[in-house]
Deep mutational scan, measured.
Amino acid sequence: MGFKLLSKLLVYLTASIMAIASPLAFSVDSSGEYPTVSEIPVGEVRLYQIADGVWSHIATQSFDGAVYPSNGLIVRDGDELLLIDTAWGAKNTAALLAEIEKQIGLPVTRAVSTHFHDDRVGGVDVLRAAGVATYASPSTRRLAEVEGNEIPTHSLEGLSSSGDAVRFGPVELFYPGAAHSTDNLIVYVPSASVLYGGCAIYELSRTSAGNVADADLAEWPTSIERIQQHYPEAQFVIPGHGLPGGLDLLKHTTNVVKAHTNRSVVE
């Protein structure tokens, strides 16, 4: 069995187990497998329904001669939608809004960016022009300005110390501490036991640490421990890039980060 097929099978099995364990909360999309990078042309966006009122959005972007996937989250909030992270750029984010209108038909009224990198804030200006209120932590807003990236308009308070959590509509926002970046936030959907790890969490097929220019490698494993301790009931975990899975993604990420750190020390 090929690795790609095995990865998709694991996603399907995880979703099936969740649907059985929580039949009222989960209505997993039966329309197909989780979209992969090879299936999404740059400039297009796919939506994948995880649970009743919960979707991931998947886009792709060219970077350094390669094409990478990027995940975000959409959560229903009454007759409105909360968006977590842009679709990595203005063109993708405009396509995301169009796809949401086509498939869901509810307005996106608020959006949260989970850290300051372009795959999370690139497209904020498109959201703002569409009347979406954009939010991020003060740290993310400051770092985005320093980096020359787009800056969300509103500040999220109460997320300055490791372990801080605040309720934001249908989700809980959690600051686990520094990891992929010093400002990275985690998003949890309690009604569906869905954990969105953003770039602080890796997919299972990833074996290298990737972009760690703004990471705190020493603190990252401790931050992941905080996530595990705060959300032990999480059933569906979405990484910032690639295929979702279960809580095993947290341990896998820790292993990859520690291996990278150990290699760096040896070198």
Results as ranks from 00 to 15, higher is better:
residue 1 M to H: 03
residue 4 K to N: 05
residue 6 L to D: 08
residue 7 S to T: 12
residue 7 S to E: 09
residue 9 L to Y: 08
residue 10 L to S: 07
residue 11 V to M: 08
residue 17 I to V: 05
residue 19 A to H: 03
residue 19 A to W: 13
residue 19 A to D: 15
residue 21 A to P: 06
residue 21 A to D: 09
residue 22 S to I: 13
residue 22 S to T: 13
residue 24 L to F: 08
residue 24 L to Q: 06
residue 26 F to P: 07
residue 27 S to V: 07
residue 29 D to Y: 06
residue 30 S to I: 12
residue 31 S to Q: 09
residue 32 G to T: 06
residue 37 V to E: 08
residue 41 P to D: 10
residue 43 G to W: 06
residue 44 E to K: 10
residue 46 R to N: 12
residue 47 L to K: 01
residue 49 Q to G: 12
residue 50 I to R: 02
residue 53 G to S: 11
residue 55 W to S: 01
residue 55 W to K: 00
residue 58 I to T: 07
residue 62 S to H: 15
residue 63 F to V: 10
residue 64 D to C: 04
residue 66 A to C: 12
residue 67 V to N: 10
residue 67 V to I: 09
residue 71 N to W: 00
residue 71 N to F: 00
residue 72 G to S: 02
residue 72 G to V: 01
residue 73 L to K: 01
residue 74 I to H: 00
residue 79 D to P: 10
residue 84 I to W: 00
residue 84 I to N: 01
residue 85 D to Q: 00
residue 88 W to I: 00
residue 89 G to T: 15
residue 90 A to N: 14
residue 90 A to P: 09
residue 90 A to H: 15
residue 92 N to G: 14
residue 99 E to F: 15
residue 100 I to D: 02
residue 100 I to G: 02
residue 101 E to V: 09
residue 103 Q to N: 13
residue 103 Q to T: 14
residue 105 G to D: 13
residue 105 G to Y: 15
residue 105 G to T: 06
residue 105 G to Q: 11
residue 117 H to F: 00
residue 118 D to Y: 08
residue 123 G to N: 04
residue 123 G to Q: 03
residue 126 V to E: 10
residue 126 V to F: 15
residue 128 R to Y: 07
residue 128 R to M: 15
residue 129 A to Q: 15
residue 129 A to V: 08
residue 135 Y to P: 00
residue 138 P to Y: 15
residue 139 S to M: 08
residue 144 A to N: 04
residue 145 E to Y: 15
residue 146 V to G: 12
residue 146 V to A: 10
residue 146 V to N: 08
residue 150 E to G: 11
residue 152 P to A: 14
residue 153 T to C: 14
residue 155 S to Q: 11
residue 157 E to V: 15
residue 158 G to D: 14
residue 161 S to D: 15
residue 162 S to V: 11
residue 162 S to T: 11
residue 163 G to E: 09
residue 164 D to M: 11
residue 165 A to K: 13
residue 166 V to N: 07
residue 166 V to D: 04
residue 168 F to I: 14
residue 174 F to N: 02
residue 182 T to K: 11
residue 183 D to T: 00
residue 183 D to A: 00
residue 185 L to D: 01
residue 185 L to N: 01
residue 186 I to A: 06
residue 191 S to D: 08
residue 192 A to K: 10
residue 193 S to P: 03
residue 196 Y to M: 09
residue 200 A to E: 02
residue 202 Y to A: 13
residue 205 S to Q: 14
residue 206 R to N: 15
residue 207 T to P: 11
residue 209 A to R: 11
residue 212 V to M: 06
residue 215 A to Q: 12
residue 217 L to R: 13
residue 220 W to F: 15
residue 221 P to I: 14
residue 222 T to R: 10
residue 222 T to V: 13
residue 223 S to L: 02
residue 224 I to A: 05
residue 227 I to W: 03
residue 232 P to D: 13
residue 235 Q to N: 13
residue 236 F to G: 06
residue 237 V to C: 05
residue 241 H to W: 00
residue 246 G to I: 04
residue 247 L to K: 05
residue 248 D to R: 06
residue 250 L to W: 02
residue 252 H to F: 03
residue 256 V to C: 04
residue 257 V to Y: 03
residue 258 K to M: 13
residue 260 H to Q: 08
residue 260 H to R: 09
residue 263 R to Y: 08
residue 265 V to C: 08
residue 266 V to T: 15
residue 266 V to G: 12
residue 267 E to G: 11
